[in-house]
Amino acid sequence: MEILLRYLHFVSVFALAGTLFAEFFLIEKSLNRKQIQVLGKIDGLYGISALTLLAVGLTLWLGGYGKPTEFYSQNPTFHLKLGLFIAIGLISIYPTVFFIKQGKGLPDQIVNIPKLVRWSIYTELILLIIIPILACLMAKGIRIL
């Protein structure tokens, strides 16, 4: 069971990163509604991968698979990693709502994308890049705080 959970955790990480990179490369200053709908679908997959990653991660942490629960619970590096993940989730709300609202209408209609939507995606990506470093440190028992 542990191997299956770790595999699902690993695949979820790649799905999350892949969809976020796709959003990063597809977002522009203005898009038509059809392009926004595509971004909305990608964002939906991003959300599913994030929820899967969170559920599996919590199961690995609290289910006692592999290292004891205390190993993670008492490690400030783990808390920082989890905090960054939560921050990414909160930051992602605004682009998600924007894509849902602006995806409705005539497909060829042009929509200006607010800077905050673009910067939210950029910020999520920067924070996401930090998390694997924290995971490596955490796995070795290195506490950075």
Rank of each mutant, 00 (worst) to 15 (best):
V11D: 10
S12V: 03
V13T: 10
A15F: 15
G18F: 15
T19G: 03
F21C: 07
F24A: 06
F24P: 01
S30T: 01
N32F: 11
R33F: 15
V38S: 11
L39T: 02
D43G: 14
G44Y: 14
G44T: 15
L45H: 13
S49L: 09
T52K: 00
T52F: 13
L54R: 05
L54H: 08
L54A: 10
L54D: 02
V56E: 09
G57W: 09
L62I: 00
G64L: 06
P68A: 00
P68E: 00
T69E: 06
T69L: 11
T69K: 12
F71C: 00
Q74M: 09
P76H: 02
T77Y: 09
L80W: 04
K81Q: 12
F85E: 07
F85P: 03
F85M: 01
F85W: 10
I86N: 09
L90D: 08
L90Q: 04
I91P: 14
Y94F: 14
P95N: 11
V97K: 14
F98K: 03
F98Y: 15
G103K: 05
K104S: 12
P107V: 01
Q109W: 12
N112Y: 15
I113A: 06
I113G: 10
W119S: 08
Y122F: 14
L127K: 10
L127P: 12
L128F: 14
I129W: 07
I130N: 03
P132W: 11
I133G: 08
